[in-house]
Design a protein around this nucleic acid. Structure first.
Lengths: 155, 155
DNA sequence: CCTTGACCTCTGGTTAACTCGAGGTTTTAC
DNA sequence: GTAAAACCTCGAGTTAACCAGAGGTCAAGG
């Protein structure tokens, strides 16, 4: 099915979907959100350059890290033009996200330790229980990242 | 404001809201979801026994752990009758949730390690990149817990 | 008695990340 | 040439955890 000539062909949505593992509708959705771009052929159908595959791959990985699409979009937008991400770009982003992941992990560990400290106490008092009041564990809602963690297999 | 007689009085929604720190509308919502119950007075207004405060406290803590309301509701339902949770009940639940938290933390750590291992490689290949394919890190969608992690301060 | 504030129900809106379907066009393959 | 498969747009539905507001009732104080 794949000839030598096809290697440089642009991809249709269906092909991108098949190769990247995301649904066609999701690709439409990403495009609407500005995460990816496409050109149109004479019949108004989307045609993608091969680099879109790497872009989609990056999106999927970032999602597994719990980064919301909006933030992924921001990150992608900051790549100088709209080229596909290179290894260097990836390094910058992955280091940033790795730090965020560290942060999230340490918050969860702190929470777990408090929970373990409280097991059996049963107080849950508004004033005294360390599991309550102090908003310092999660939800500092300042400028920064608050993200969702969800299953990787949406269905 | 608080007399000795008030101590045994039933609470209004407004009072529960003030003492527990959740909004009145949220209490309505919890009731609709079956997480709490109320009696009504002659004028159809909600009246709560004092124990509801502990129940709400437990709900809030569980939410900080990232447990969705539906699952919290299940847990509360499994308390023999609809009494307020005791220290023993709390122990059972907090141990369960602590294990889930551990699980979540270790998944994130695994993911972080992979991410760090991959920084700079930039491959993101469908077949080879450990950050991709294997669905073993997040999102085993079997029966069990998949939950959201969100800021503790909804507003 | 009358005003004010708390309460009631119900509808609709919010965000995220999509999916599904309707109704119609284009491409591809035979 | 025609039929099937793939594509198009647009609108609505999904889940979670609520909040806002409309329109009306109830309770407490002076």
């Amino acid at each position: 099915m794949i000839s030598a000539e096809n290697v440089h062909k642009q991809l249709t949505v269906g092909e991108v979907a098949a190769r990247s593992g995301v649904a066609v509708t999701a690709l439409h959705f990403y495009e609407a959100k500005g995460l990816i771009k496409s050109q149109r052929n004479a019949g108004n159908q989307r045609r993608y350059p091969r680099e879109v595959l790497r872009r989609v791959a990056l999106i999927k990985v970032a999602q597994r890290l719990g980064i919301p699409l909006a933030e992924i979009g921001e990150a992608l937008k900051q790549l100088p033009d709209n080229r596909a991400p290179t290894a260097a770009d990836w390094k910058v982003l992955s280091e940033k996200w790795s730090r965020e992941l560290d942060e999230r992990i340490s918050q969860l560990m702190l929470l777990r330790d408090r929970l373990n400290g409280c097991i059996g106490c049963g107080c849950l008092s508004m004033e005294a229980c360390p599991l309550r009041n102090q908003g310092d564990v999660l939800g500092e809602k300042g400028p920064g990242a608050h993200f969702l963690e969800a299953g990787a297999d949406p269905k």
